[in-house]
């Protein structure tokens, strides 16, 4: 390490370095992970540990092959691996999940230049890859505790027009869905820790969740159900707040969240898929450089 850290702008002051941030996120992710393991059992734990190990190993091997410093200690691969497991069905085959983790780190992150240079959120891009590759395995959902195959609440309500589970079950996570997306309670506690530690801030999640709620209400759907179901809360707090793939300014993050919310609503109610959080965030990732360009705060004394 040199005496001075040379980095490209924007230089935003933060009490933490990149390493600390990623490890804090990983710790916050332990809560939804624990909830997932509680509801979906040992298989969920195995999936979680497996994708994390594969993600870290992939990063180490890629960097070693490219003769670059191995930076697995920064925790970003750990976060990607954990996030990927949390957005997969709990009974997803391990080998497919492994390929997903390799795709996330190898293609989406390392090939684009590693941490800080990837355009897309690696875990989400890997989920899109897996959904296109093995759609059957990716849409096989199980009920909590007894692991009987069932449909997700969003699917039941949006596509079959039947009643979903109650708000309380949605809130604590007693419903079918991806490993870590079901328990809103656990995700919120994890998010609160990150908010309190100022690792993430409020604009993107608030705009995201708020716009989904309001647009659902305007379109005549149940806004509370829309906000509690699917992967919305997890995506809003842990993926729409990504340092690398989301805008840097408060205004930019707000716009980013609004765009995610709009896309989610469009996909959920008018698209072929029951859930749209995944694609909406990936879609907005593309616009991040553009948002950063136009949502830049004016310099003091600078004319419009």
């Amino acid at each position: 390490m040199s005496a001075f850290d040379i980095s490209s702008p924007p230089h935003i002051r933060s009490p933490y370095g990149a390493n600390n941030i990623m490890w804090l996120v990983a710790i916050a992710l332990l809560l939804p992970s624990a909830a997932g393991v509680y509801f979906f059992g040992f298989a969920g734990l195995v999936l979680l540990v497996f994708t994390t190990i594969v993600a870290v190993l992939t990063e180490a091997i890629c960097q070693w092959l490219a003769k670059k410093p191995v930076t697995i200690g920064d925790g970003s691969a750990v976060v990607t691996g954990m996030l990927l497991a949390l957005i997969l069905p709990p009974t997803f085959p391990l080998w497919m999940a492994g390929i997903g983790a390799i795709f996330a780190i190898g293609l989406v992150k390392v090939l684009f230049g590693g941490l800080g240079f990837n355009i897309f959120n690696p875990a989400l891009a890997a989920r899109a890859f897996l959904l296109a590759s093995w759609p059957v395995a990716m849409t096989t959902w199980v009920r909590p505790f007894d692991a009987i195959t069932t449909a997700t609440p969003l699917y039941v309500v949006n596509k079959l027009h039947e009643a979903g589970p109650g708000y309380w079950n949605l809130f604590i996570g007693n419903r079918a869905g991806s490993l870590g997306e079901t328990s809103v309670l656990a995700i919120l506690i994890g998010a609160l820790i990150l908010l309190a530690a100022r690792v993430i801030d409020w604009p993107a999640p608030t705009a995201f969740i708020g716009s989904v709620g309001i647009l659902s209400w305007l379109l005549g759907h149940d806004p509370l159900f829309a906000m509690l179901s699917g992967g919305l809360i997890l995506g809003a707090f842990f993926m729409a707040t990504d340092y690398v793939t989301a805008p840097v300014t408060t205004k930019g993050r707000f716009i980013f969240g609004l765009g995610c919310g709009l896309m989610t609503v469009l996909i959920r109610y008018f698209g072929g898929f029951p859930e749209g959080v995944n694609y909406s965030i990936l879609f907005m990732n593309i616009f991040t450089p553009l948002i950063d360009k136009y949502a830049r705060p004016r310099l003091f004394g600078q004319r419009r």
């Binding site: 759609p135 849409t139 096989t140 596509k159 079959l160």
Partner: peptide, 13 residues
């Protein structure tokens, strides 16, 4: 589909 016909898995539409 899903009533008197078995749908193709993952391809309800």
């Amino acid at each position: 589909p899903k009533k008197d016909i078995d749908a193709i898995t993952g391809a309800t539409i």
